[in-house]
């Protein structure tokens, strides 16, 4: 990883373990290869090749309508590429049974729905769906995993509370617990901090950092560039449906790159707390 930005339009060669020429290191468990993404006839991205590096906390940033949520949806198999493919564990994600995918890849969408009157424990337990079957009833293993997921997100004390009585931050932690109960090595989070106040945003991001350190590969779409620079170990900056820059925040968050992606003249200083890049818009 060298320059502050480079073109994303690298042509894929490697058939299965990661598209060619993206990042060095471990093979990517999940990547989009030459993908055309859009809704109906409107293409948001064309020829997009992006890989999710194993073991990293990847954050996708970019201005509104840059295609970052669309990319996440495609990686989560919610949107089928019109051309190209998304590859999970070496195979086209759409060629795999969706329940099998759900045991590898967990997804927290932007606005999940909590049914009226559901308790925290019941909601988290619904994350066990891909591990259950018609004949395989609720097991001690399910019970243990749900307990651990609630422990990890610090919602154990809320177990019997109704989800609708919780604060925004607590609720988001409960949803993350639900996805954790899915026991997937990969976690995809679509704007997990939107609608939260600053304290709860930090709480959720700290939790994401903790999950990353415990060995999971995370991908999140975030709005706040400074939060992204602080928490991500790998940044993907998008604009107009294309990747403009990607790499470690310390390497790619430069004044030129920020201006190129967001049209925002700025200075970059060192975050006094974490020594990560801090973007200060020019007055």
């Amino acid at each position: 990883m060298t320059g502050p930005s480079y073109s994303s339009a690298s042509v894929a060669e490697g058939p299965n373990r990661g598209p060619a020429g993206a990042t060095e290191g471990a093979p990517s468990p999940l990547f989009a290869e030459d993908a055309t993404l859009g809704y109906g006839r409107v293409a948001i991205s064309e020829g997009l090749t992006v890989e999710v590096p194993e073991g990293e906390f990847t954050v996708i940033i970019g201005p509104n309508a840059c295609g970052k949520s669309t990319l996440l949806k495609a990686l989560a198999r919610m949107l089928k590429p019109a051309a190209g493919r998304v590859v999970l564990d070496g195979k086209d994600i759409h060629s795999q049974p969706t329940r099998a995918v759900a045991r590898r890849l967990g997804l927290l969408p932007q606005s999940p729905i909590a049914p009226d009157g559901i308790t925290v424990a019941d909601l988290v337990a619904r994350g066990r769906y891909p591990h259950q079957g018609i004949l395989k009833q609720w097991s001690a293993e399910d019970e243990r995993v749900v307990g651990e997921a609630m422990e990890a997100t610090d919602v154990t004390d809320l177990a019997s509370r109704g989800v609708d009585e919780l604060s925004g931050g607590q609720r988001q932690r409960v949803w993350i617990a639900m996805v954790l109960a899915q026991q997937t090595p990969l976690l995809l989070l679509d704007e997990p901090t939107t609608y939260l106040d600053i304290t709860h945003q930090m709480e959720v991001l700290d939790l994401c950092g903790k999950l990353h350190r415990s060995g999971r590969t995370l991908v999140a779409v975030l709005h706040d560039l400074n939060q992204a620079a602080r928490y991500a170990t790998h940044l993907i900056a998008m604009r107009d449906g294309a990747v403009v820059a990607e790499g470690a925040p310390a390497e790619i968050v430069t004044a030129e790159a920020v201006e190129k992606v967001f049209d925002l003249p700025c200075r970059i200083i060192e975050d006094p707390e974490t020594a990560t890049p801090l973007v200060i818009p020019r007055a």
Binding site: M78, A100, V101, R103, L107, I113, P115, Y129, L188
Partner: peptide, 15 residues
């Protein structure tokens, strides 16, 4: 039960 959490969440859970 999975669908009750929204179509997107249900898809994520393998429905």
């Amino acid at each position: 039960n999975a669908l009750a959490l929204g179509d997107a969440t249900a898809t994520g859970l393998g429905v």
